[in-house]
Design a protein around this nucleic acid. Structure first.
Lengths: 170, 170
DNA sequence: TATTGTTATACTCTATAACTATA
DNA sequence: TATAGTTATAGAGTATAACAATA
């Protein structure tokens, strides 16, 4: 079998590769379902979704604390500007963030945490999230975490190669 | 520092652990965004979303080919019965799946692929998905994939411990 | 003209509850 | 009574396009 030199991958190997990759992506799919489900539940007392969690978490990054443009935030989170606008609208309605006009470019709006938002993060969300991480990563050594981050980084780079402009430009 | 024996984890170590876990979950969040974005785009010619992809893929599993109850499918996919109902409704409208009453229990409906659905999967979706896996897992050795699956499995068990009944029972 | 951000629309997914029909 | 499945509703996220203001 496979005596044709023009066929580099035998069917058997192809099927094995399919099965493993398929299982990997199904596990990833299941993990994303559970991430959003358990994550939203962990923060439900504050009516914060996982998307809002990601936005608030990003705004606590030292680089973004002075304010970050909507487009830059969208690039960082890998969501489109339009979809980010909806999330920002809800967070602003809850007074956790505010928008100020960028003095250097009047087209741009800088997003930053309000005092209320910073307080929510530090006093309420961070402790809950820390507990959540401990539960979700139970049994993971530091090395395990480092390896997993490495794999996710690698996959992310591949995803970005597939869709080079995920913020919905055009 | 940390001369209090009742404090097992010094603040520094706690912060390091937070940073690593936080990075891990943010990467996971980014990967899920890109998975749904690039996955849906890969199958957009057939108007199939990643949720529908997961359902159709599950129905091709040998165990499920004879038909699977809605509840069992929901347990497998880690979505709620109610949400699965909506996805099934759309797939049925496209004539990719059908429901038959379980002869052993008239309350139960068995979900199975139609000939059209099987053909869509075999002839159209599987080749596209195989290409997609190759792109998304470029640079991953078989060992890498096995390790990553292992980590995702482990995290999934932790998620299930946090939310033991993800199919929305009550 | 290009860019930044917003608004508008339609669709999908999710959470929750309530309902039906069977068991 | 309990279970399997469905329906109903509201909220949130997404894709796509079109728009206003500014560069």
């Amino acid at each position: 079998m496979n005596d044709d030199p023009a066929t580099p991958i035998p069917d058997q190997a192809r099927d094995l590769s399919w099965g493993l990759s398929n299982r990997l992506f199904f596990r990833l799919y299941q993990c994303t379902n559970m991430l959003h489900k358990t994550g939203t539940k962990a923060l439900e007392a504050h009516s914060i979704t996982t998307q809002q969690w990601a936005v608030l978490g990003a705004l606590t990054r030292p680089t973004f604390v002075p304010g970050v443009a909507v487009g830059d935030l969208a690039t960082f989170l890998l969501v489109s500007r339009q979809n980010l606008a909806g999330v920002l609208q809800r967070l602003e309605a809850m007074a956790y963030i505010e928008r100020v006009v960028d003095p250097k470019d009047s087209r741009s709006r800088l997003i930053l945490l309000t005092a209320k938002g910073r307080s929510l993060w530090d006093a309420n969300m961070r402790p809950v999230i820390a507990d959540y991480y401990r539960e979700a990563l139970a049994g993971f050594s530091t090395e395990d975490k480092i390896h997993l981050v490495h794999y996710l980084d690698k996959m992310l780079r591949n995803f970005k190669a597939i869709d080079p402009d995920p913020t919905g430009g055009k």
